[in-house]
Structures are given as structure tokens and as C-alpha cells.
Design a protein around this nucleic acid. Sequence first.
DNA 1: TTTAAATTAGGAATGATTCCTAATTTCGAC
DNA 2: GTCGAAATTAGGAATCATTCCTAATTTAAA
Lengths: 133, 133
Amino acid sequence: MNNYSKQREAILDVMKQNLIHPTAEEIYYLVLEKEPQISKSTVYRNINILVELGEIKKLNMTLGPDRYDYLYKDHSHAICEKCGNIFDFYDDFNKNEISKKLLKQIGNNMDINSITIYGICEDCKSNNKNKEE
Amino acid sequence: MNNYSKQREAILDVMKQNLIHPTAEEIYYLVLEKEPQISKSTVYRNINILVELGEIKKLNMTLGPDRYDYLYKDHSHAICEKCGNIFDFYDDFNKNEISKKLLKQIGNNMDINSITIYGICEDCKSNNKNKEE
DNA sequence: TTTAAATTAGGAATGATTCCTAATTTCGAC
DNA sequence: GTCGAAATTAGGAATCATTCCTAATTTAAA
């Protein structure tokens, strides 16, 4: 793994230019515009390679297929389990006090790659107030 | 949704007695022992209902199919992205300072259901030191 | 009871992802 | 540059996980 290919390059470009947390399928259609002959299996294979190389990040979703994010520094996510919206936030987990406390609680000196918060966002909370079922 | 059924009861019992973060498939085989005629679709359907009712929690995995956990109070997870191990830790996110700070960073007053930490555990870190590829 | 709604088993269908294969591309050694 | 080994590709088949469909059964409220 790790020879140059214009297909892999095109996928990484798409990720850099679309900071919208696309699914693998969405990445495929975005890449198609520049590489009309690319196959879905190539997209899936390269997404996995890019994740392994640490160039992009996989977001494990509660709802629907997983999503991907071009990895920039100190970037974590909060995901609404009702509507699926993803909120970005920024934090250097290798420096700050929050992660020190979390690490102490875990009792295992992990390298923290990211923190994901799962919850219900403001919008979904207020929409819910009017509902009864 | 919400009539009594012995199948749903059996699934919840399995979850209460097996705090091992099983996959849906594993839950199916565990329930089979008590309900030998239960079908897989019944297991999947009831798992989803129990998640919706808040009786069990879905863990979004980086590796492999999702896993489930019998929900007890103030319980969150750290997942190793290399070996898939799940570490439990305990924290009431609706009370403590950590979640207050996280909420401020998100900029959206979410109800936090849980926090999941993704990283590399101690074991995988030390195993890696000897590897080069 | 009676009846409507919920639930079931079982299998078909779907959706997402990985695997397979033969052809092509990359790249380092000469 | 040329060669050959290793990596990569397109395309489709296969697999895996999950949901959907249907007719029969069970539940629960009137």
C-alpha cells in the first residue's frame, strides 16, 4: 500500500474541498465528476487506506452509514441522534485538562484520537416539546 | 409499539445478564438459548425498540458491526480503534464540569446522552513499538 | 367475549461494503 | 530507458448486516 494513483489523489482532493462529512457513496459521486471512470470499489478501498494513513477520519454514526471527515488538527464532533446533524468543535485532547480528567476516569492511558458526543440537539429538543405519541 | 411479548422480555434479560457489549448477532444467539424459535428479524426489531425506549444503548463502532449495552446511569465508553476493545467509564454528564465545558465548545445546548472516546489503548500502543511496516 | 392493534417467524429484499480477477500502472533496480 | 515485482484499477460477484413483507398469532382494552 502506498503507490501513487490519481484516483486516490482525487478522493483526497474531494475530501479537502468538501468539509461536509460525506458518506462513502457521496464521496463516490463527488469523485465521479473528476474521474468519470472510477469504480465504487476503488473509492471504498481508498477511503479505508486514507483512514489508515490518518489522512481522513471516520465518523461512527448512530443513524445511517458512516461518514468521513478530512482530518485537521484538534477537531471533534457532536452528533444528534435524532436528526443526524454533526456539530464540529475544536479541542487539543493531548493538551487540555478535559482529556486529562477523562483519561483518569477511563483508567487506561489511551492516546485519544477524538471524542464524539452523542445527544439530542437544541432544535430536536424544542421540536419534541409539541409532540406526543 | 409497546405490547408485552416474551421475546422482547427475553432480549432485555439477555442484555441485563450479559454486560459484554454484544453485537445484534451475538444477542440473537444468546436469546436462542431461552427462546429457541425466535427469529433474527424479531431480535433486530426489538433491539431497535429497546434503544428507542432508552432501555439499551447503541455503541457506534469503528471496527465491525455496532454493539449494544444495557443502559445504566452515567455510563460512557472509550473504544480502541486498533483492537476494538471497549472500556467503560462512569460520569454524569448532566452534572459535571467536563460536560459544561464541552457544551460551551459545541455552541449548541445539546442534551448529552453519552460521550465516546476513540483512541488507541495502552496495549496496542506498546505492541506497536516493535512493529514496522 | 370481541375486535383492533401489536407482535411474531420466516424468508425475501435491500443497502453497504468487501472480495475476486484480469488488466494496467507505478516505481525502483539495473 | 527497460525490466519485473508490487500496487492499483474497473467491474462485477459475493458477503454481511439489517430491514421489509406477509400471513398467522398474541395482546390488551372496550
